[in-house]
Write a protein that binds this DNA or RNA. Structure first.
Length: 903
DNA sequence: CTGGTTTAGTCGGGCTCCCGTGG
DNA sequence: CCCACGGGAGCCCGACTAAACCA
């Protein structure tokens, strides 16, 4: 979009950078999308707005089927408009998220759903569009444009300015000049950097910024109102007890039966403990040099290395099976740089004659001897008799026993990660710039111990001392150290089944539940603010919308030396593609460099906003929400409800979704079916949260096998039909030729192969049996059967082969049993059809599920009480849903709710 | 920003389930 | 025909630790 009009904008407008002028809005409305191949405006003027269903084409993980279900369930969910929602309780319950995958089917409803529609600016005609778009280029745009050309350069300057104010090289975040113009507008959101820029644009706007405030204040006021979270009433101790006995069948090592979740004194406050005793940490074993005959080769020559260097070589050598890392050039580069460093310090290596070998080229290093050795040891260990394995484990357990538990306020609690992380090569994920670097051995001198004042401080290893001893009662960690690669802190904390962890987990879900009470208002507000005059507000509203609707993460800023991943607030220009009228395609790498790809339909205003936020001079690499930070966003959210932050929306939407799905469920089938239903719901939540896993190595092969089996069944169906035909040729007319045809996707070749495979299978079996029998005979002193016998036995296979051949030739199949009747064949066909169906769903499930990870949502997002309720309501043992560790982790949930509990 | 806590995917081991075999 | 058993493929689970979020 070129706007010539820029120059002439009145001052008022000029400064509007921060403000979004109505004109701008309108103009945007019609402007062709950045990529727009479509004509502006046209179509949509009146069309149903927003949220119309887009198929979520993109998610490979979601199949039509699933989608369908989703849609169905959603449809009833939405009915009221946001506006109305304010008053109606029920509305509030509908997480917007659900709407994401709505399908076209919902069209009509979407209209009324869209309260927004009403608020939308009057429709514009095509002609209008034409003119307007240029003329009233609003806000910053004008400025921008003029600058546009120069911008790029200017940008640098601006950057420089900012840089000085914020010394850290903000290189990453190329702030648009625009930003600098708009600085003042954000009283609320503090993207400080811009402050530096004032020089260029005089901001006479101080007052303006004020205007922003009111809202804020309102919010603040609101905060005051917020009600205190209700602590669960404590049940009578008696009631509790009886409950317990029943449920203890589980045979947990039931301690004192203390139920912190019923203890009002727990859960709040910053002091986490009063007394704390523990035994510190377990260090990894020292490096054991490789046997003399195992050496890495350099340029084909085995070299002896100093143990310190050898250890690093060993790190690499032992992971040769991890092609994923080994084939990553960054990994190799980082590894080798660190390797060389150790080599330099230790004098490189020597050949068998003691001559020095200087290692300078990664390519000449051959770690395979090390790998082979390691691999051999692994397999040996695996092959160890069970008894020995057990003994080894017992021994290890014994050594570690003292570290496994601690005493926390006098209660025995399991420690989570009491083992200090052993040295290794850092496996940063995605395109982590530091992946492959050597993670050094942690020395006691680096470790800080946190422990009760009265407690005995665990003794550091012989000849060592701890870095520091603390008595921080506000921390929940027992020990801590800083890792050498990113300077990250590593903490030893309690296990997930501990009281503290349970308490905070409980608190987390209660917070999410509390969000229910505010969600209406929040949605109403952001829908209103989507049109705010203040750029910052508008961005914030849009961001909240995305977080709420699509379960995006907050998206904190990241540093240069981290993988380049993003979340909502850090989304960049290239991560969003706009397709008019209201379709948005997300494509970016999120946490753990997991790809987030989704094609969604959004509110029209959101669409316009995104287009605005992407306006030039922004381009690749520039942030979409340049006025927004996670801190600012969270601060805003906190005004609705104490503790409300972006991530709470994920918990809320996940649990809410699960809750709805489970409610709608009327599982009546077998336990297995109920479990399958539950898992299906779980899967939807996982998809919502974009929880993925890498597809198993053998997946494709497994699928192929499955398909072959299915086709085998279908082929047998065909044969059965042919048999029917042989019995009663008139059937062909009755049922139609189609019925008797071989499925089109099964080729003659496939049939032949399949037949051959069957025949071969039989042959192999006969052979095997024959040989075995002979072995036995020999053992018994009898004499072996002759080859002739084998041949005779093999005749069966030959006959089968001949039969197939004949069938192929004549195209007819004779019934295999004498008493075959059409009825019997029908029956057989039925069972084959059922088998096919079963297998097909199984296969589809497998395929759809191949890259969906259910665990993460189950462990972190779905309120466990929902699962407990389901378990009770449908009488399915909780073991079907929670593994042992999860049952321990969620003990508080398992023991605290009855089947009427609601999220 | 540092420091502390939650969320996340991977990996390897072992368990489960299925099948064929032999009694 | 039933059952125990062995073997193997897949799947589940827990351990591990990286990577988020957030005050």
């Amino acid at each position: 979009m070129s706007d010539s009009s820029d120059d002439d904008k009145p001052l008022a407008q000029a400064r509007s950078d921060e403000r979004v002028s109505k004109a701008a809005d309108k103009a945007l409305d019609k402007m062709a999308p950045s990529k727009g191949h479509t004509k502006p405006g046209i179509s949509l003027a009146n069309g149903p707005v927003t949220q119309t269903p887009g198929e979520s084409v993109a998610r490979p993980t979601t199949n039509g089927h699933t989608n369908g279900k989703r849609k169905a369930s959603m449809t009833n969910g939405r009915g009221k408009s946001y506006k109305d929602a304010s008053s109606s309780e029920s509305d509030s319950d509908i997480p917007l998220t659900k709407r994401r995958k709505t399908s076209k089917v919902n069209h009509e409803s979407s209209d009324e759903d869209q309260p927004l529609a009403r608020t939308m600016p009057p429709k514009v005609t095509a002609s209008q569009i034409g003119e307007e778009s240029d003329s009233d280029v609003p806000l910053g745009q004008k400025l921008q444009k003029e600058k546009a050309a120069i911008e790029k350069k200017a940008e640098k300057t601006a950057k420089a300015m900012r840089a000085e104010e914020k010394k850290e090289a903000t290189t990453k975040k190329t702030k648009r000049p625009v930003a600098s113009d708009e600085d003042d507008d954000k009283p609320l959101i503090v993207k400080r950097k811009s402050k530096a820029a004032p020089a260029r644009k005089t901001n006479s706007k101080k007052e303006e910024s004020d205007s922003d405030e009111p809202l804020n204040k309102k919010a603040q006021a609101k905060k005051a109102k917020s009600k205190a979270v209700v602590t669960p009433a404590k049940k009578g101790k008696k009631a509790a007890k009886s409950e317990q006995t029943q449920e203890d069948i589980e045979a947990e090592e039931e301690e004192d039966g203390y139920r912190w979740w019923e203890d009002p004194s727990k859960g709040d406050g910053t002091k986490k403990w009063t007394t704390l005793e523990h035994n510190g940490v377990v260090f990894p074993p020292d490096y054991e040099p490789l046997p003399k005959h195992v050496k890495m080769k350099y340029d084909g020559v085995p070299v002896t290395l100093d143990p310190e260097a050898e250890e690093v070589a060993y790190f690499y050598g032992s992971m040769l099976n991890s092609t994923h890392n080994i084939e990553n050039p960054v990994f190799n580069k980082n590894f080798f740089a660190d390797f060389k460093e150790v080599l330099d310090q230790t004098g490189h290596g020597t050949d068998r004659n003691g001559n020095k070998v200087k290692i300078t080229k990664f390519e000449k290093c051959d770690f395979r001897p090390i790998f082979e050795h390691v691999d051999a040891e692994r397999t040996m260990k695996k092959a160890l008799p069970a008894a020995e394995k057990k003994a080894l484990k017992a021994k290890k357990d014994e050594v570690e026993a003292p570290f496994m538990y601690c005493m926390w306020d006098g209660r025995k609690q399991k420690v989570g990660n009491f083992r200090v992380e052993p040295p290794s090569l850092f496996r940063g994920r995605g395109e982590h710039p530091k992946t492959g670097k050597v993670k050094k051995r942690v020395q006691p001198e680096q470790i800080t111990i946190n422990i009760g004042k009265e407690a005995t401080v665990p003794a550091p290893p012989e000849g060592h001392r701890w870095k520091e001893i603390k008595h921080d009662q506000e921390g929940t960690w027992l020990a801590m150290w800083q890792e050498n690669i990113n300077g990250a802190y590593k903490y030893v904390m309690l296990a997930a089944n501990s009281d503290v962890k349970g308490q905070s987990d409980h608190k987390k879900f209660e917070k999410a539940r509390e969000l229910k009470k505010h969600i209406d208002k929040i949605r109403k507000d952001y829908n209103r603010d989507l049109k705010s005059d203040m750029m910052a507000d508008r961005q914030r509203a849009t961001a909240v919308y995305l977080i709420d609707q699509f379960a995006l993460r907050a998206g904190n800023e990241k540093g240069e030396d981290e993988a380049d991943t993003v979340g909502c607030c850090s989304l960049k220009f290239e991560h969003i593609t706009l397709q008019p009228p209201d379709k948005v395609i997300f494509d970016f790498l999120g946490k753990d460099s997991i790809r987030f790809y989704d094609e969604v339909t959004v509110d029209r205003q959101v669409f316009k906003n995104l287009r605005l936020f992407k306006k030039e001079p922004k381009g690749d690499g520039d942030e979409i929400f340049d006025r927004l930070t996670t801190a600012g966003l969270n601060k805003y959210l906190g005004s609705y409800m104490p503790g409300l932050t972006a991530k709470v929306f994920r918990t809320y939407n996940a649990s809410w979704t699960m809750s709805k799905l489970l409610q709608e469920m009327k599982s009546t089938g077998t336990v297995a079916e109920k479990v399958a239903d539950y898992n299906a719901a779980n899967r939807k939540v996982a998809i919502l949260c974009n929880h993925k896993r890498t597809v198993a190595a053998g997946h494709a092969g497994q699928m192929e096998k499955l398909q072959d089996r299915i086709n085998g069944i279908r082929y047998q169906q065909w044969r059965t039909k042919q048999m029917m035909l042989s019995i009663d040729p008139k059937l062909k007319k009755k049922k139609g030729a189609e019925f008797f045809a071989l499925p089109k996707d099964i080729s003659q070749e496939w049939v032949k192969e399949f037949q051959a495979a069957l025949v071969e299978e039989i042959r192999v079996k006969i052979h095997k049996k024959f040989e075995k029998e002979n072995e036995k005979r020999v053992a018994d002193g009898e004499k072996e059967m002759k080859a002739k016998e084998l041949e005779e036995r093999l005749e069966v296979a030959d006959e089968l082969e001949a039969k197939y051949k004949a069938e192929n030739k004549s195209g007819k199949v004779q019934p295999e049993s004498k008493g075959a009747t059409v009825e019997k064949m029908e029956q057989k066909l039925d069972s084959l059809v059922t088998r096919e169906a079963t297998m097909k769903t199984q296969s589809e499930d497998k395929e759809n599920n191949k890259e969906v990870a259910l665990g993460t949502s189950k462990i972190n997002y779905i309120d466990p009480r929902l699962t407990v309720v389901f378990s009770k309501k449908f009488d399915v043992p909780i073991e079907k849903f929670f593994s042992k560790t999860l049952r321990e982790k969620f003990e508080w949930a398992i023991k605290s709710v009855d089947e009427n509990w609601e999220f």
